[in-house]
Write a protein that binds this DNA or RNA. Structure first.
Lengths: 159, 159
DNA sequence: GGGTATTGGTTGAAAATGTAACTATCAACG
DNA sequence: CGTTGATAGTTACATTTTCAACCAATACCC
């Protein structure tokens, strides 16, 4: 415990010479915080109205936006673990937002698609997502927005 | 059911005219995925070696980087809910990575600081975080990096 | 064909998180 | 004082997520 005083001894230490970078520059940290802040800001829309969770919203959004696909497709495209998707799919099925259909060629697959209800919810939420996104974007210049999205897509290994 | 066919009818529908924006452009979604990808890429470092969770790492990082502070300070600075911080602090105390000390002026507060062990772990992880961050940065130009971080800090309401 | 590996998807138990109610301390005001 | 209200932090309970094992269908390979 002798070098315990090596930090915070003065009570208000500000910079650690060993620290190569500020915490507020650590990309995973920054990404987590901003993801949390922006997501929970939007979550009210699907949570209050439909009682959906974030993963469920993600599945709904995928099916609504890109049409029929399998659970595995959603996993791959959204980098989401299959158990998360599996449970979200069951929950969406329970509230009649999607239907599953076994593929007859390969009976392991089942293709998922939204019901009318599901698609209606998707459309409503999609509109809100659009304005929420525009609201977020409005604080940046078009160039910043382009760069931001390009960097994020690359970090996420998307497209 | 009439507009059920509005999606996926052709089997490989690509674009919904109602969709104002692509899912891959929705900022909260992009942020979540890239946060998930980059964080879990780094998480092995503290998970395998120290059995720490992401929140615990966040607390450790704050105390290591900025020195002694209260749980509430960490909540505010990292936009993390107090119950999450509370549990992370307990866990870090259990493995002797930090110590609490009641403030005698106002006994509601307790200031937290790392033990020698905790600080050692912090330094080790900080080094790894540095190189991980540089690795992530290396795929972007300096301008892109600057813009990316500035945008993220703003989205996160950080400093 | 028959064994083995792989893949799509599910399930159960453990861990983490969210929410709300709680304790304890202090401050403000009568 | 005593009451009310705020604040730092904890705890209990429900929900969600993670992890590993699992089932069923297909592919591979001898």
């Amino acid at each position: 415990m002798s070098d315990q005083a090596a930090h915070g001894a003065g009570g208000a230490m500000q910079d650690d010479p060993d620290a190569k970078f500020d915490l507020k520059d650590f990309l995973p940290y920054l990404l987590n915080i901003s993801a949390e802040v922006t997501s929970s800001g939007f979550a009210d829309n699907y949570k209050r109205e439909y009682g959906m969770t974030r993963t469920q919203w993600r599945v709904l959004f995928h099916l609504g936006r890109y049409g029929e696909m399998t659970a595995r497709d959603i996993c791959t495209r959204s980098r989401t673990h299959k158990t998360k998707v599996s449970r979200a799919v069951s929950a969406l099925e329970d509230i009649r937002f999607l239907k599953r259909q076994r593929n007859l060629d390969d009976r392991r697959f089942e293709s998922l698609c939204l019901t009318t209800e599901g698609h209606k919810a998707y459309k409503t939420l999609c509109g809100k997502a659009g304005s929420y996104d525009r609201m977020l974007m409005s604080q940046f210049t078009p160039e910043e927005n382009a760069i931001l999205r390009r960097c994020l897509r690359q970090l996420a290994n998307l497209s």
